[in-house]
Design a binder for these strands. Structure first.
Lengths: 221, 221
DNA sequence: AAGTGGTCTAGACCACGCA
DNA sequence: GCGTGGTCTAGACCACTTC
């Protein structure tokens, strides 16, 4: 299917406002509809998304304006999973066994087999995060078992599903101190995440141990 | 103005699905439009918000379904500011002076006067959070100076504005250890927040020191 | 009075899933 | 072939601000 009209309009408006000073007014919805030869509702859909994402803001009865660029919405907690440019993963360890605690949190019987993987995320050679990933073994596609990185790619799940994250303060676990190059006794944040499918069934459990020097958790909403 | 039609429809659908098991299909958009004697676009607006908030999920070409209740979207970091039932604030301290560091982060000249207030949030008598609030003194309405709690109510700003939060791991500051009833040396999370107006101008700076026993930071998205 | 965003309507076509 | 959600249209009225 061709890309929807409103997405094209959205892109063109984004290009249009790029570099404009904060609070610059943009054309009214009716004008934009004429410019783009689209209905006002379609233009509104594009504008609504741009407002939602923090590129624009509205002022009722007055107009729509360019917002501060640094305030584009960002939830870097979810970004933890997303692969950036200079970021790569190094698998440290994985096995399959019963892990009752993890099974419980995945709504599974305690004796269910769990795939546990531990990997290190590096950004430009510097250690950023240790990830402990717990997956129900039965959900793993056997054809992919030789390509463990495909299995551990959480993006597809997060796209359509939902994410609950708990931020836990702790001292760095001793076994990760060297790997993250963080001194023993340093306070860190461990992000305890459960990924759900749209219906609310748990799909994966992930614990992220962040190196506070390299990974600042910042959320803009 | 009367409440918009779509909000009423939204409420009625929420009541309708309340208590229904996960994955129960609801009526199609066209049926609902007939039921509520509204256009399909209006029904869609109501449904879209319910999906956005995590009450429903869609399955293209199949239908719309009830989502897991525990997965309603919640960002408890912003909730930190919202007054709950059993929650109340106890003002510990406030004054007005130059605070160059705070002024800088509020995009003000270093010699600008800053109102600094420190208060303790209690939940059912238990200490939950210490809040350090920094406001440009010139933005304070003098008529309100005798009602400091009105000034420190951040809700109106957050409603229409934007929020950037950084999550900082640290050991509990010694001066807050007793107040929060947290042992010295305990790792905690400090949430460093800046509240902006829609155009991106900083309005307030707030540091939240969370008691990890009482305040679990949890985000569902 | 003119212009703005917010809401609403009564249609329409599309791609896709399913029987 | 029918039903679904996703997109789109060409209008309309409202409350409000600005001139």
């Amino acid at each position: 299917m061709a890309a929807p009209r409103y997405l094209e309009i959205k892109k063109r408006i984004m290009k249009e406002i790029e570099g404009k000073p904060v609070s610059t007014p943009i054309a009214s919805e009716r004008e934009l509809a004429v410019q783009f030869d689209a209905s006002r509702m379609t233009v509104r859909k594009a504008l609504n998304e741009l407002v939602e994402e923090g590129y624009l803001y509205r002022n009722k009865n007055k107009g729509t304006f360019v917002a501060e660029r640094s305030l584009h919405k960002k939830n870097t907690a979810a970004d933890s999973f997303l692969k950036k440019e200079e970021t790569n993963h190094k698998l440290l360890y994985f096995n399959v066994k019963e892990i009752p605690d993890a099974a419980k949190r995945l709504n599974l019987p305690a004796d269910e087999l769990i795939l546990r993987a531990v990997r290190l995320t590096l950004n430009d050679e510097r250690p950023v995060t240790i990830e402990e990933i717990f997956l129900p073994y039965k959900s793993v596609d056997y054809n992919e078992m030789n390509e463990i990185n495909t299995i551990l790619d959480m993006n597809p799940y997060i796209q359509n599903g939902r994410l609950t994250q708990r931020f836990i303060p702790m001292l760095i676990p001793s076994q990760y101190s060297n790997l993250l190059e963080v001194k023993m006794g340093t306070p860190i944040i461990m992000v305890d995440s459960i990924i759900y499918d749209p219906a609310g069934n748990p799909v994966a459990l992930v614990n992220l141990y962040h190196n506070p020097r390299e990974k600042i958790i910042e959320i803009t909403s």
